[in-house]
C-alpha cells in the first residue's frame, strides 16, 4: 500500500477489511458445505487425491509474511477472478449434466459463485483505495475442457477444495492489511506463522 494513509482512508480500509474477513468466513463455511454435498452427489471419494487443477491458483504461498499489501490484494483478486470463471463453468456443466435433477446442488453452487463475485468486487474496492485501482480483467478464455465427466467431477472437487483454502488465506491476508500503521501491510511486518 503506497505511502501513509489519511485517517479516513485508513478507516475505510479497515472497514472494508473487516467486512471482507466476515465475507471470507461465510464463504468458507458455505464452500465446505458445498464440498460435502458435491462429493456425495457426484459419487466421489472424499479422500480422493486430485492433481493440481489447471487454471486454479494455489492458495499456498511461500514467504507469505513477506508479501506487501498490494501483492496480497492482487493475488487474491487474480484468484477470485479465476474462481469466478471456474465456478460459472461448473454451474453450466451441472445444468447440462443434471438439469433439474439436482437443483439444490445448482443453487448452492450459484450461491457460492455469487459470494466469490462479491468478494472479487470487494478486493477491487480495496485496490481502488490505493489509487492504483484493480488491474483490468484479462480475457483468459474458458478454462481447459476436461477429457471426460469423471475428470470434470475431479476438477470440480479440486476447485472447491482450493477455494476453501483461499477463503482461509484471504481472511488472514485481510487481517494483515487491517493492521494499523503507515503502509500497513506494504512493508514486511513481523513474521506471523501462516
Amino acid at each position: 500500500m503506497a505511502g501513509a494513509d489519511s485517517p479516513s482512508a485508513a478507516l475505510r480500509r479497515r472497514d472494508l477489511c473487516a467486512r471482507g474477513i466476515r465475507l471470507a468466513g461465510k464463504m468458507r463455511s458455505d464452500v465446505v458445505d458445498l464440498l460435502d454435498a458435491y462429493v456425495e452427489r457426484q459419487g466421489l471419494d472424499a479422500s480422493a487425491s486430485v492433481a493440481a487443477v489447471e487454471g486454479v491458483p494455489p492458495a499456498a504461498v511461500e514467504h507469505w509474511d513477506e508479501q506487501t499489501g498490494t501483492q496480497r490484494l492482487l493475488e487474491n483478486l487474480a484468484a477470485y477472478r479465476a474462481f469466478r470463471a471456474l465456478l460459472a463453468q461448473m454451474l453450466e456443466e451441472q445444468r447440462e449434466q443434471l438439469g433439474e435433477a439436482d437443483a439444490a446442488l445448482g443453487r448452492a453452487l450459484a450461491a457460492v459463485l455469487l459470494q466469490v463475485s462479491a468478494f472479487a468486487y470487494h478486493l477491487e474496492e480495496l485496490l481502488r483505495l490505493e489509487s492504483r485501482g484493480p488491474p483490468s480483467e484479462e480475457e483468459d478464455g474458458p478454462p481447459p475442457q476436461p477429457r471426460g465427466l469423471f475428470e470434470q467431477k475431479l476438477r470440480g472437487l479440486g476447485v472447491l477444495r482450493e477455494l476453501a483454502q483461499w477463503a482461509v488465506r484471504s481472511a488472514r491476508d485481510l487481517r494483515q492489511l487491517a493492521k494499523p500503521g503507515p503502509g500497513a501491510g506494504s512493508a514486511p511486518s513481523p513474521a506471523e506463522s501462516p
Partner: peptide, 21 residues
C-alpha cells in the same frame, strides 16, 4: 445410477486416478 452417474475409477500405483462415468 444416480443422477450424476456411477463413477468407474482406475487407481494407478503412482497415486493418480483415471475414470469414467
Amino acid at each position: 445410477s444416480d443422477a450424476s452417474g456411477t463413477n468407474v475409477v482406475c487407481r494407478l500405483n503412482n497415486g493418480m486416478m483415471e475414470g469414467t462415468v
